[in-house]
């Protein structure tokens, strides 16, 4: 029902979609996070993601299980990258299958919103004037 992955390798959308495919599904919704080239009007050079792997995997699994309880969906793939990512690379893929599209859209949004609040993964931005851990200080 759920496929959770944390990897230093390039994420693969196709493998997420193969995992969530289901004969009873009428929709697969994908959320793909991509590295943007600017933040607060400053040029971003690259990002680096660090994870507390054991806990990140267990928190990701919790979120996926919550989504399965909350929404009428079939399967979830939730993959997150670690390491250094260049502009346009993919830090996160969420694929959700469901009988009807609405539930999969809502589940994708719930999963990414919750992941950003609770999964112990940290993003460092490399800007032209230095490097900063995102959200670390007020």
């Amino acid at each position: 029902m759920i496929d959770i992955k944390l990897s230093p390798e390039t994420l693969n959308l196709e493998s997420c979609n193969v995992f969530v495919a289901d004969p009873a599904a009428g929709a697969i919704v994908n959320f793909i996070g991509t590295v943007r080239n600017e933040t607060k009007k400053q040029k971003v050079l690259r990002l680096e993601f660090e994870a507390y792997e054991k806990m990140a995997l267990s928190e990701m699994k919790k979120i996926a299980n919550q989504a399965l309880e909350k929404f009428d969906i079939k399967k979830i793939a939730l993959h997150h990258r670690t390491g250094v990512l260049d502009i346009s690379e993919i830090p996160v893929i969420i694929s959700v299958s469901s009988a009807h599209r609405k539930a999969a859209f809502l589940a994708c949004e719930f999963i990414i919103d919750t992941l950003k609040q609770s999964v112990p993964i940290w993003k460092k931005e490399f800007l032209e004037n230095g490097e900063y851990w995102v959200s670390a200080t007020p």
Binding site: P91, I112, K116, Q117, I121, S135
Partner: peptide, 10 residues
């Protein structure tokens, strides 16, 4: 025991 500063995944 782990110190978890504000997370910023995704």
């Amino acid at each position: 025991i782990a110190i978890i500063p504000p997370v910023s995944g995704g």
